[in-house]
Simulated scan of single mutants.
Amino acid sequence: METSYNETVVPAATKIAGSSRASMKQRRPLVIWFTGMSGAGKSTLASMLEKELQARGLRTFLLDGDHLRRGLNNDLDFSDASRHESIRRAAEVARLIVDAGIVVIASLISPFQADRDAARALFTSGQFFEVHVDAPFEIVEARDVKGLYKKAREGLLPKFTGIDSPYEPPIEPELRLNTAELTPQEGLQRILLAVDSLGADAGEALTHRLYA
């Protein structure tokens, strides 16, 4: 029986733990994972959050689904199998960046609960903060800032989430935001307050910097 290449891969051990990198920056890193349908407001809130954290002296990295599609995931289509793989890759990248002591802000539709659960499983307790950015379907479709729903209705974008591919809302996200009822600034403040509530074990150093 042939040996697969994966069986020969042995990651090089590092002598610097992620916790050590984090302590050097006076905070504990985590991933703030925005999930929701296109047009819900994920990218807006993720961008605002990154700007806020950077202004307060935190090192951040924004993982945006559209950007990943142009590079790391440009070999994938929108079949269910490719969507699973897309989120798997994004989660692995997020894990590596968090291990480097950086706060990751991930903005990804990530429509399937199982994929989000698998992403969460890569992180220690308190390091995965899921934000469900939600709004009624008629509102997200009416926003349609990229014209995607229109194209999907015309059959130009098969397997589009919300039209002919499902979105599975998170069962127990750390935070759920209805952007039909909240302004972006109100949503941002709720995110900051929710991260603050993580407490000493999960986010004390991060939020100390936020509210110092």
Rank of each mutant, 00 (worst) to 15 (best):
M1K: 10
E2A: 14
S4P: 10
N6W: 12
P11T: 06
A12V: 11
A13K: 14
G18H: 04
G18Q: 07
G18R: 01
S19H: 05
R21H: 15
Q26G: 11
Q26I: 08
R27P: 14
P29Q: 03
L30R: 09
I32Y: 02
T35R: 08
T35C: 07
G36E: 01
G36A: 03
G36C: 01
G36N: 00
M37H: 07
S38A: 01
G39Y: 03
A40H: 05
S43V: 00
T44E: 07
L45P: 03
A46M: 08
S47C: 07
E50I: 10
K51S: 14
E52F: 13
R56V: 02
L58F: 10
R59G: 15
F61L: 14
F61A: 15
L63E: 08
D64H: 04
D64Y: 02
D64K: 09
D66A: 10
R69P: 02
G71P: 01
L72T: 12
N73L: 07
N74T: 03
L76H: 13
D80V: 15
S82V: 09
E85F: 15
S86D: 13
I87C: 13
R88M: 02
A91T: 00
E92T: 09
A94W: 06
R95S: 12
R95C: 12
L96S: 12
I97V: 11
V98N: 14
D99P: 02
I105S: 02
S107A: 12
L108P: 04
L108G: 01
S110Q: 01
F112C: 01
Q113S: 07
A114E: 09
D117A: 13
A119E: 03
R120K: 07
A121R: 12
L122D: 05
T124M: 13
Q127N: 15
V131S: 12
H132V: 00
H132E: 08
H132S: 08
A135W: 14
V140G: 13
E141L: 05
A142M: 12
R143K: 11
D144Y: 06
D144K: 08
D144H: 05
V145P: 14
V145N: 12
Y149F: 08
K151H: 01
K151E: 09
E154P: 13
L156Y: 02
L157E: 01
P158S: 00
F160Y: 11
T161K: 09
T161Q: 10
T161N: 07
I163H: 06
P166T: 08
Y167D: 07
I171R: 15
I171G: 09
P173E: 11
L175I: 02
R176D: 02
L177C: 13
T179M: 12
A180W: 06
A180R: 12
L182D: 05
L182T: 04
T183K: 05
T183A: 02
P184N: 09
E186S: 07
E186H: 06
L192K: 03
L193A: 15
L193E: 15
L193F: 06
V195F: 06
S197F: 00
S197N: 11
L198F: 03
L198K: 04
G199L: 01
A200Y: 12
D201T: 03
E204V: 04
L206R: 00
L210N: 04
L210G: 02
Y211T: 03
